[in-house]
Design a protein around this nucleic acid. Structure first.
Lengths: 131, 131
DNA sequence: ATTGACCTTTACGTTAACGTAAACTAGTAT
DNA sequence: ATACTAGTTTACGTTAACGTAAAGGTCAAT
C-alpha cells in the first residue's frame, strides 16, 4: 500500500483555510512549519497541512500560537525513554486541564445564552396573547 | 426582601479576577463598563462585576472584547417591541453558532489529546513488559 | 503635617499576529 | 519578446489589548 504523497503550494493552503500566504510564512518564521523547497518555492506535505490545521483550530479556541505549538509537538514526536514518555504524559495532562477549563467556560456561556433565549421567547409569547 | 446592594472598588475586582486596574479602566474606555462614582473613585455594582466576569470568560474561549461585548449586551437589555425581540433572537442564534463551532474544535482537540495519551501509555506498557 | 494606602488622569511603550508594499525571480502563454 | 501568474525576500506599518511610568488628589493613621 503506497501513500499518495500529496503536496500543496502555499496558495493551495492559503485558499483552503482562507488565510493569506503572509500568515503561512509567518508561522514558518515562528518555527511552526518547515516545508520542503522546489528551488525557491515552498512545498507543503500533508503533515504540514495538518500542522496548519491544528494551529488554526487552536486559534479558534483562544490558544496563542505558542500554546498551539506545544500541542502540535506532542503529536509530531515519538519519544523512547521512560523519562521522555513521562514528560510527554505530563504535558498532555497540562493541556487537558487547559481544555477542560475552556470547555466549562463554553458550557456556561451556552447555558446562559439559552436562558436569555428562553426569556425572549416567552416575552414573544406574551405579546401574542394580548396583541 | 431587600437586596444587599453590594459594591466593589477597582482593586477589589482586580484582585478577585487577578487582573490589573489598568485592564479594568481599559474596558471602561472601550465602553464595556460604566461604574458609578464616589467623587473621583469608581464604584462597581454586582452587575458591573458580572459584566467583567463575562468579558474574562469570553477571552478564555478566544472571543475578542468586541465579541464578548455583543453577548453582554444581550443580557443587559430588555427589549419590548416584537421587532426588537426578534432582532435579539437573531443575535442569539448567531452567538450560538459561534459557540457551537468552538465546542466542536475543543472536542476534536480533546479527542486527539486522548489518542496521543493512549499511545504514550501503551508505549510505557511495552517498556514494562521487557525491561 | 507627613507618611502610607488607594485612587485618579494622561500618555507613551510593548507584544502578538499579522497587513501591506516594494522589488525581484521563474515558469507559462501569446 | 512580452506579458501574466505565482512565487520569493525584506522591511516598515497596523491593531488589539493591555503595560508602565509620571504626576497628582484624598483620606486615615501616626
Amino acid at each position: 500500500m503506497t501513500t499518495a504523497h500529496e503536496t500543496y503550494s502555499i496558495s493551495d493552503l492559503a485558499s483552503e483555510f482562507d488565510i493569506t500566504t503572509r500568515t503561512i510564512r509567518f508561522y514558518e518564521d515562528r518555527g511552526m512549519l518547515s516545508p520542503l523547497r522546489d528551488g525557491q518555492k515552498r512545498i507543503y506535505s500533508p503533515a504540514d497541512r495538518t500542522t496548519l490545521k491544528l494551529i488554526l483550530r487552536g486559534k479558534r479556541i483562544g490558544l496563542s500560537l505558542e500554546e498551539s505549538f506545544e500541542i502540535i509537538q506532542l503529536y509530531h514526536q515519538s519519544p523512547d525513554s521512560r523519562k521522555q514518555l513521562n514528560k510527554v504524559l505530563q504535558a498532555i495532562e497540562k493541556q487537558k486541564e487547559i481544555i477542560t477549563e475552556k470547555k466549562s467556560a463554553i458550557q456556561s456561556m451556552e447555558k446562559e445564552l439559552q436562558e436569555v433565549e428562553g426569556k425572549i421567547r416567552s416575552a414573544l409569547n406574551e405579546l401574542d396573547k394580548t396583541p
